[in-house]
């Protein structure tokens, strides 16, 4: 499903001003949003989810318009059907793993019937069954991440947003979780937008690559087929080149 984002937003705090002017289209199911911290990646995600209102612009998933300032459309986050996995996972500390996963099913109509059965399926699928009655504070980083993912995916969102999903994990675990993420992607076929500033994530996950810098999208690359973009460079080469331009000091 195609995701179209074209938004502008100015933030002011303590006399400093940040201007976001992000415009990109993501055709493929796995899009990596890449760029240094403070470049507007998270803000863009929050705008897509409806948690922050852009000053102007347009956001669309497939045929569904979520935001359009010219026609006054601004769907509430509750109605956008966009899943969000937060950087620190934002699990509800007062609810068990089971209740966390179940949280989004209340009041939502699910076509597969009984919510309890569905929660059970997801517990099994994400290998969380033995932890069903544990509280988030007793889980490891990887387990927390799986709960956050299960909680978002059980609602069958049209789009899944992941804000640095691997940054809270220790490096040894990252590889495994990255693989799990691609597996889930294949299984659920839900398009996802992943924020990262880890080049390894780009390698593993990117079909589309959106590069942010200073509040602007500086590049949108298509890496899906044979890992080459239009210029004929391989995926690692594209990455190296992009990195070199973003961090000129590191490249020397």
């Amino acid at each position: 499903m195609k995701v179209r984002v074209d938004i502008r937003k100015t933030l002011r705090s303590h006399g400093r001003e940040f201007k976001l002017d992000a415009s990109f289209e993501a055709e493929h199911d796995s899009t990596v949003v890449f760029g240094p911290s403070g470049s507007g990646k998270s803000l863009t995600m929050q705008c897509i989810a409806g948690l922050v209102k852009p000053d102007e612009g347009h956001i669309q998933i497939g045929e569904r318009v979520l935001f359009d300032s010219s026609s006054g459309i601004d769907l509430r986050p509750q109605l956008r059907n966009v899943g969000f996995v937060f950087q620190d996972y934002a699990l509800f500390p007062h609810l068990t793993v089971e209740k966390n996963i179940d949280f989004g099913l209340h009041g939502a109509v699910t076509d597969s019937g009984d919510a309890a059965v569905r929660v059970q399926q997801f517990l099994v699928l994400f290998e969380l069954e033995p932890l069903a009655h544990s509280y988030p504070r007793n889980l490891s980083g990887g387990q927390r991440q799986r709960v956050a993912l299960a909680r978002a995916l059980i609602r069958q969102p049209d789009l899944l947003l992941l804000d640095e999903p691997l940054s809270a994990l220790d490096p040894l675990l990252r590889d495994r979780v990255r693989r799990e993420l691609t597996d889930m992607q294949l299984r659920f076929k839900i398009p996802m937008l992943v924020i990262t500033h880890d080049p390894a994530d780009v390698e593993a996950l990117a079909e589309n690559l959106v590069v942010f810098d200073h509040g602007r999208v500086t590049r949108v690359l298509n890496l899906k087929h044979s890992g080459e973009d239009a210029t004929g460079l391989t995926r690692p080469q594209v990455l190296d080149r992009t990195l070199a331009e973003l961090y000129p000091a590191d490249a020397s």
């Binding site: 409806g50 986050p77 934002a90």
Partner: peptide
């Protein structure tokens, strides 16, 4: 507030 935002993206009024 991130927890409240998470609940909103999960469809809660």
């Amino acid at each position: 507030t991130q927890l409240e935002n998470a609940a909103r993206t999960l469809g809660s009024s």
